[in-house]
Design a protein around this nucleic acid. Structure first.
Lengths: 251, 251
DNA sequence: ATGCGATGATTGGTCTGACCATCTGATCTT
DNA sequence: AAGATCAGATGGTCAGACCAATCATCGCAT
């Protein structure tokens, strides 16, 4: 076959329809044309405006929804349709669970990252906690004191306690990341507890450490709070045999 | 209208098709039935197996792809179809850009989170950096020394430097989060530089601090490296008027 | 006049079936 | 044996249709 020498060819558009739609919507958001609370046109309308089919458009909407950017409901009215959501929903950063399961990240990495975020947010929380923060934290610890509590709920409250501290630090992003990290390791945590011959003994230690941390936060002693939470996390993973975790968290 | 007393009704499935598909695939991944490198059946096959239409199934696949879990290609053969991806692609945590634009999180929160992650990873990097890490970091700094460099590229290399440090810490998760955080604030960073009357003066300061940090890492002085990077970030935001950021990063 | 139920319009949710573009791998040709 | 060719499989896209939930409105009875 002969080829025309010198002729230059430029590849045709390989960008899938839903990706182009995504780019357009992203631009509108970043550019500020789309703000929180704004409604997207209905799927039928928008698909015409964008020149794509409804299924293609819907693929984009699904992704935006999973990312916590859109809140989609049926029916008309002020609440109907696709609305730019104002608060970060479940979407956002939760995929870590799957990525952990796929081995993208190790358990060790998750714990270390948790350590980095928690020491910071705990110190910060000690500096600027409100009385409401204190009460909420105390209430969580009280529920953890239940003698007949089960591993799953204990772990759940443990998560709530640490996340609540992050919230007290005033940083919603850190709090959100912490929630995500905890959710990603939730399964292994519960399994690890279940493997302990006497998990209630360990639980007792955890309780004591929690109370100590709360006390430091109450006294606005940032340094002590930070040190305590570091020891808390480090000693926990030194005691409890969590699957996929090897070695101490600090050098 | 009369109602049958005592009759109990259980709500019909309100869970959308694509969500049920998502749950099934999630379970298979978490349960270990689906591993990295495994192929999903073709869309036509899978849609029949799951009892949903192809468009519905595709919505799920799109989300999984956006989350960095699936790698989807056309055509048959060993590389065709949907494959569970082994390395965290672009997907994962990038949505932060949109969430920032929507005001879910403030710039301040992003910077503080960055501070928490960087101080940790920098200290860790100082402890266990390899010689290759050192060379890579030095190479980046060298490129940043170009006198006629532009703001965009300077910022890009700045990001690379900090992310490379995170990689040297051996924690891929932290490195990934850092990349995401930097990408989310990329626009504002470049704008902030552009607003500076003499940004090259600031750039010179940044360069000096970078070299100091690298030196501390080279000497395995974790404490100094951590302190330097904290000052580096703090002083930067005290100097450069970044949009949406108010106040110092440390108390 | 007012409260409440019926109704229709709008919107998302889902499905069917079809066609295109691309890639793989086997087949055929030279 | 090497290359071109073709058939099959797969993802990408579309059009049209119907269902189900929700809301706004209208009309009726009180």
């Amino acid at each position: 076959m002969n080829e025309a020498a010198g002729a230059s060819w430029t590849p045709v558009s390989r960008v899938r329809a839903h990706e182009q739609v995504m780019m357009q919507i992203e631009e509108q958001i970043i550019g500020g044309e789309l703000k929180v609370g704004d409604h997207l046109p209905s799927e039928r309308e928008l698909s015409v405006l964008l020149g794509v089919s409804r299924p293609s458009l819907r693929e984009t909407l699904r992704v935006l929804e999973a990312l916590g950017v859109l809140d989609i409901r049926r029916g008309g009215g002020p609440d109907g349709g696709a609305v730019l959501t104002g608060s970060p929903g479940a979407g956002a950063v939760e995929p870590l669970t799957l990525q952990l399961a796929l081995g993208h990240f190790t358990h060790r990495e998750l714990v270390d990252t948790r350590l980095a975020l928690e020491t910071w947010s705990c110190a910060r929380a000690a500096q600027q906690r409100s009385d409401e923060d204190l009460e909420a934290l105390a209430a969580i610890l009280e529920r953890m004191d239940a003698p007949d509590i089960e591993t799953a709920e204990f772990n759940e409250l443990d998560t709530r306690f640490h996340v609540r501290i992050a919230e007290a630090s005033g940083n919603a992003l850190t709090a959100r990341l912490m929630t995500t990290l905890r959710r990603a390791i939730r399964r292994q945590m519960i399994d690890a507890y279940a493997r302990l011959p006497e998990w209630r003994v360990t639980a007792q230690t955890v309780r004591a450490e929690h109370h100590a941390i709360l006390e430091a936060i109450a006294e606005r002693d940032a340094e002590r709070a930070e040190r305590l939470v570091r020891e808390h996390i480090t000693s926990f993973y030194a005691t409890v045999p969590v699957e996929g975790y090897q070695g101490a968290a600090t050098a």
